[in-house]
Computed example of a mutant assay.
Amino acid sequence: MFLSRLLEPVKAAAREAGETLWQMYQSGDVQYSQKADDSPVTSADYAANQIIIDRLSELTPDIPIISEESSLVPLVQRQDWPRYWLIDPMDGTQEFVARSGDFAVSIALVEHGWPALGVIFWPKEQICYYATRGNGAFKQHRNLINHIKVRQHLQGEPLRIAVSRRQPLERINALLASDQQVEFIPLGSCSLKSCLVAEGGADCYLRLGPTGEWDTGAVHIIVEEAGGKILDSQFSPLSYNRRESLANPDFMVMGQSNVGWQSLIQAHSGCRS
């Protein structure tokens, strides 16, 4: 009941932040800068961040918030939190800058170290993906809501892999079994590629390169409720709020559970702690 009461207000907050991002995207009235790690950040990121923090603080004033665009609380202060909000106000800032439109708002509630509620809003398409623990995953396009499930991959079919437009495919090919036929599906933000797996548009998504826990929190519960899994490159579960850094290892978003993923995708030692 607690999660169900939160869901609609969180969806509303994600939509409000997403509509602000879209207005700024269309107007072009945006300031650009670089973070210390050379990744881009914009005034749109900060505007969406403030909207989400304001709405969540009103909704649940006793639940702390971790955001990509806010100062990180030291592990010693947060490691015993029973629950917290984990947000990325704009997943896909590079796509915003490149004008592809493939960016999204991501909001997750993490309980006892595991995502329990997730909402992804894609402003360009007016699509909201969402899930709560034990209640399935859904895709809402305006007023039309559909229950989503991962794709049933058939033996002998090409493996449909969601990939970034900005990542060399050679790195992905190096992880695949040599005889595996593949079809690459390019898309923008990390969360949107994960949701593509959740709704059956792709069989898997291999993420190589830096991400944060805010990039996977919301989609983790959506993918799992749709019947898939997110595992690191050693086929181990991701973890949340256990390290001083919130950096993720390389990870894989995998659809149908009875596919022999470990024979199709080679584990590698590129994980970061």
Rank of each mutant, 00 (worst) to 15 (best):
Y130V: 00
S189Y: 06
T42V: 05
A13Q: 06
D80E: 01
S189R: 14
D62S: 07
P64C: 10
D62N: 14
I66Q: 13
E19C: 14
A137M: 06
P89M: 06
T211C: 08
E199C: 01
K149N: 15
G209Y: 13
A177T: 00
D29A: 12
D38A: 03
S100D: 02
Q234P: 05
S39D: 14
I230T: 09
V150W: 02
V76G: 04
W114V: 00
W214M: 05
P237R: 15
I230S: 06
E183Y: 09
Y32A: 06
I172V: 10
S263G: 08
S233F: 04
R133A: 14
V119Q: 00
P74G: 06
I222D: 02
L231W: 13
L196W: 09
G227W: 10
W214A: 02
L72P: 02
Q79P: 00
K139L: 03
Q256F: 13
G255V: 07
Y32M: 07
H147L: 03
L175D: 02
H268Y: 07
L175K: 15
V163T: 04
T60A: 14
G188W: 10
I65A: 08
N241M: 02
N143I: 05
S178G: 01
I222E: 01
Q234N: 15
Y32Q: 05
L196P: 03
N173D: 04
L7E: 09
I161F: 13
L6S: 14
P237W: 13
I161K: 04
V219P: 01
A137W: 06
S178F: 12
H153W: 12
L187V: 00
T216D: 12
D88L: 03
